[in-house]
Design a protein around this nucleic acid. Structure first.
Length: 616
RNA sequence: GUUCCCGUAGCUCAGAGGAUAGAGCAUUUGAUUUCUAAUCAAAGGGUCGCAGGUUCGAAUCCUGCCGGGGAUACCA
């Protein structure tokens, strides 16, 4: 036993290489630098890979990737790598296939570099010097209707990205910018004035955002009716677009008047606006709370919509912008992006005017190293123009701005369209998911209904939804089938949660048997492929966090957690932990392994803003 | 017209220039006296849209074409 302890201490000499912390790999690097007389040591990065199935090995060194740094031939390099490993006592066997060198490590060397160093695996992979202050804006809802599946994707990606960046070691400030003013807001206000009958969310027992959304729908119905009437009286308007007929309708004119009154701060309009917005915000708060979303700061468009005008004037002076013959101020963004109007000829703002203003305001307020917007991919051009305009204005930080463009969410029937009533409402979706989780939990429990059934169902249902949305690369347009794609089997959140639940159950039973996490672990005993695979996978966790953060892609972490859970499920089947046929030492070692794997799974899910239920 | 994204198994999707292109679902089959079967094991299923090019090596990079979607407002 003492010998083991000494060996443990020796291999604790851990060094960091691109997220993979292994002494043997660092030694290999030193050896190759010596052999090939490499001058710039930082040019040589050795990132081992998991050996593919069917090959004999734990880890693989791909020598093709070392050609550049070493300036050698693939065959020579792989021979040298082979020779190096052949002499290492931590290596049981080495195999060279073409320029790939596959090594099998002793269990103790492997586990000591991996799960035994759980604190290292869970530490932020980015050092303090390269940590950035990142402002991330997402959600950006309108206050005239409740949120739908598209917002849910935005919210989920935004919050998980913020959490991921934080986990990687950055300083993250999540912010929201609520579109609480404008013609569309006036539409729901007119709708309420005409059809509201002085009802309130309380009097009708309706969630505030749904309550207001109802009047937005009624408004649009009325508008459509008036347009139809107009066309029946004036048949020549048949081919004119609906948008162009807006100001020819009575309700359209009333809406425009209301917007003007709002901008002139007419008290009756302002108080109606304040009352209805308060209802919506209360509803949104519930939605955000249920999703586990918190913002450090919420900007309101009603406070920011006038920003930018003076900046345009200054840009005009500095020559960043030019005045066109018709009086509009434009920015010339070159051949690809063309000209963009930044101020109307009548001197009023366009959308990009206030975006310029808000972005500069955010920069001055927080001085971040990077600003990120999580906004749908239909606005790619807009953001390119925004960044281009800021660049022209001489803001050097404009090249640190980043638009994380995510794809749309389609239904099997096609696009979601609010006008056709094919929108999946966020709150309905949450309830459906949680109910599904509850039903299947009840099925599994039989008569033994757990006391925390509702809390558990909430965690499982919401976890399944978030996991599903994060599984896809953000930029892909995804197809969401509420019936089929939302199951709790296979590559899902509950699969990962289930692995955690099984581990928790084992640990509870182990404690009853007198096995604790303080017991000394003999890692040598975990020598099966199933046990080694867990350590191999765990070894890559910091690198996965780092890569996912640098690519701003949570799906990388999602795939990893599925792989690790899969490795665990196999281990669970093949290596009983508390079986009576096991010695106490084996039980202790396997319990320790379970704890470490659970820690990683829990940490990974938490990073994705997903919780783990007490049991399943 | 210009521009951006996508095209990989029946379906939904991973593949960070490298080995025999992978998962899940669906289909077929097997596993529960042993720590939770929301699990595990296995089978079938692929001209990686097409054609060139770069490379020792291309699903991955470049060019062209075909197909699908988005953006091309003094809308937000």
């Amino acid at each position: 036993m003492d010998l083991i302890k000494v060996l443990n201490k020796l291999s604790i000499m851990i060094l960091i290489i691109k997220g993979i912390k292994m002494k043997i790999i660092e030694d290999l690097k030193k050896y190759l630098i010596e052999e090939y007389k490499v001058k710039d040591e930082s040019s040589l990065e050795i990132l081992p890979e998991i050996c593919p199935q069917g090959m004999k090995g734990d880890l693989t060194i791909n020598c093709f990737k070392l050609i550049k740094a070493l300036r050698g031939k693939p065959d020579d390099i792989s021979n040298k790598v082979f020779e190096f490993f052949d002499k290492e006592s931590d290596v049981i066997s080495v195999e060279k296939v073409k320029a790939f060198v596959n090594i099998v490590l002793t269990p103790i060397a492997l586990h000591q570099s991996s799960v035994a160093q759980i604190a290292n695996l869970l530490a932020p992979p980015i050092d303090k010097d390269s940590a950035k202050k990142i402002l991330i804006e997402f959600s950006a809802p309108n206050t005239n209707k409740p949120q739908h599946l598209g917002h849910v994707r935005n919210n989920t990606i935004g919050m998980a990205l913020a959490s991921l960046m934080k986990r990687a070691g950055h300083n993250v400030i999540p912010v929201n910018l609520v579109n609480d003013r404008g013609i569309h807001i006036c539409k729901s206000m007119i709708g309420y004035q005409r059809f509201g009958n002085n009802e309130t969310p309380e009097s009708t027992n309706t969630k505030g955002d749904h309550f207001v959304g109802k009047f937005y729908v009624q408004y649009n119905t009325e508008l459509k009716k008036q347009i139809a009437e107009l066309r029946s009286v004036q048949p020549e308007l048949k081919d004119v677009k609906e948008d162009d007929l807006f100001l020819k309708t009575e309700i359209g004119l009333a809406t425009q008047k209301m917007l003007q009154d709002w901008e002139n701060k007419k008290s009756s309009v302002i108080s109606l606006w304040e009352m209805m917005n308060a209802w919506v915000f209360k509803g949104f708060d519930e939605t955000y709370k249920r999703m586990g979303i918190e913002f450090d700061k919420t900007f309101l468009e009603s406070n920011t919509y006038l920003l930018g005008k003076d900046l345009i004037a200054k840009g005009l002076e500095d020559g960043a912008f030019t005045k066109r013959e018709d009086g509009a101020v434009i920015v010339d963004l070159g051949k690809k992006l063309g000209e963009k109007v930044v101020l109307r000829s009548d001197g009023t703002s366009v959308y990009i005017t206030q975006d310029i203003g808000t972005t500069i305001k955010k920069y001055n307020e927080f001085t971040p190293d990077q600003q990120i917007w999580v906004v749908g991919d239909e606005q790619i051009l807009h953001f390119k123009q925004l960044f281009g305009a800021l660049n022209k204005m001489g803001h050097k930080w404009s090249d640190t701005l980043y638009h994380l463009a995510y794809g749309m969410v389609n239904l099997p029937s096609g696009k979601m369209k609010s006008r056709e009533g094919t929108v999946v409402d966020a709150d309905d979706l949450f309830s459906e998911m949680v109910n599904l989780a509850k039903t299947s939990t009840l099925e599994r429990c039989g008569d033994d209904i757990p006391a925390d059934i509702d809390e558990r169902s909430e965690i499982i249902g919401m976890g399944a939804l978030k996991f599903m949305l994060l599984k896809f690369n953000p930029k892909t347009t995804i197809s969401f089938d509420p019936q089929a794609s939302v199951k709790f089997e296979g590559d899902t959140g509950p699969y990962v949660q289930y692995a955690c639940a099984r581990i928790n159950s084992i640990i509870k039973k182990a404690e009853l048997a007198g096995i604790t996490s303080d017991d000394t672990v003999d890692w040598e005993l975990l020598s099966s492929d199933f046990e080694k695979n867990l350590s191999i996978r765990a070894l890559f966790y910091p690198d996965i966090i780092k890569t996912a953060a640098s690519k701003m892609d949570c799906s990388i972490l999602v795939s990893y957690l599925l792989d690790l859970s899969k490795d665990f499920s196999r281990f669970y089947r093949e290596c009983p932990v508390l079986s009576n046929s096991n010695t106490k030492e084996i039980k202790v070692a396997r319990v320790a392994m379970c704890c470490k794997i659970r820690d990683i799974l829990t940490d990974g899910l938490k990073t994705l803003t997903i919780s783990v239920p007490s049991a399943m």
